[in-house]
């Protein structure tokens, strides 16, 4: 996505601009043979299912999918405007608003903190990177055990339960006000290793002489951070931003393991992905409707990608 637009290939999809070249045609069979494995897999498991899903999304089906009724393209607009989808879209946006800025802030903070010449800093770097080794299931179960209101850690530590009664009644995952934040925090934590590694690598690519020059000009520490560090981290931050946003929009495992889309009746953590595939999903036994929301998720993400590239991509400085 990010990588695509900055590539010259995309800017000249014009085949006619070059003269006919016999050698190019001679290379075609070899090229086809080399491309075939990738093209077949991508075609069969990305392009085909997407196209199929677009048409399946017009249908309403019985549970086995043996009887379907064509409801027309209206089904997309109806579903998009339905209370369930609108709610899921809002929850998804809120989830992204929680996880992306927090993830970026923690990632930058930790990376800058550990980017010092201190003895033993390597240990801290290893610690901060460690959550990259936790899969979504592992991370979510760890947080489930932290937050669960009856058999969880926080609710069984006396002073915590006394100071914050919400951890026990109804529980951070069961309170509509805190559920999404709790899932979001577990997600930020799980992504922390990744963001830390990327931003640290970005920091290391900033040449020291820039700081030296700035120091000679009398720039303070915070001044250097805002004028040098942050702008030159641009590409790394943009990458992290896009990955975190995409992950937020596709979040599923942490919701499945922590809240199952609840608590009711607000369905406070039912994101679009969870609405489509989750437990208790109203779509679960209607493949038509399931396809509709899946395709709508694609459209939303597509729109988001273009918005991101259009509004942010242009302003990022790529270092040399």
């Amino acid at each position: 996505m990010l990588v695509a637009t900055s590539d010259p290939a995309l800017r000249c999809i014009d085949m006619e601009s070059r003269a006919f070249d016999r050698r190019r045609w001679r290379q075609l069979p070899a090229a086809l043979a080399l491309l075939a494995p990738s093209a077949i897999v991508l075609g069969a498991f990305i392009v085909y299912p997407l196209v199929k899903a677009i048409f399946l999304g017009r249908q309403r089906c019985n549970s086995t999918g043996t009887r379907c009724v064509d409801a027309g393209w209206d089904q997309y607009s109806d579903t998009f405007r339905s209370t369930e989808f609108q709610h899921a879209l809002l929850v998804t946006a809120e989830f992204a608003l929680i996880t992306v800025p927090l993830g970026l802030a923690f990632g930058i903070g930790l990376a800058v903190l550990a980017h010092k010449h201190l003895s033993g800093v390597g240990v801290f770097r290893a610690i901060f990177s460690s959550t990259v080794a936790t899969s979504v299931a592992v991370a979510s179960l760890m947080w489930l055990f932290l937050l669960q209101p009856s058999v969880g850690v926080l609710s069984n530590v006396g002073w915590i339960a006394d100071a914050f009664p919400v951890v026990k009644q109804p529980g951070l995952l069961n309170d509509p006000g805190t559920a999404l934040w709790s899932v979001g925090l577990s997600s930020v934590w799980a992504n922390l290793g990744f963001t830390f590694i990327i931003i640290t690598a970005g920091l290391q690519s900033i040449p020291d002489d820039l700081y030296e020059a700035a120091a000679l000009d009398g720039a303070t520490g915070t001044g250097r951070f805002w004028r040098i560090t942050l702008p030159l981290l641009g590409p790394s931050l943009l990458f992290v931003l896009i990955v975190l946003t995409t992950r937020a929009f596709q979040a599923y495992g942490e919701i499945d393991l922590l809240t199952e889309g609840g608590p009711r009746p607000d369905d406070s953590t039912t994101t679009i992905t969870y609405l489509t595939y989750g437990r208790n999903s109203i779509m679960a036994t209607d493949q038509g409707l399931q396809a509709t929301t899946a395709v709508l998720l694609f459209v939303v993400l597509l729109g988001l990608s273009f918005l991101q590239l259009w509004s942010i991509g242009r302003r990022v400085h790529y270092g040399d």
Binding site: R58, G72, T79, R81, S82, E84, Q86, L289
Partner: peptide, 13 residues
């Protein structure tokens, strides 16, 4: 642009 209707009725009107 919400319709206030459930997705259950999607494609049915």
């Amino acid at each position: 642009c919400g319709s206030g209707e459930s997705a259950i009725t999607a494609g049915q009107d």
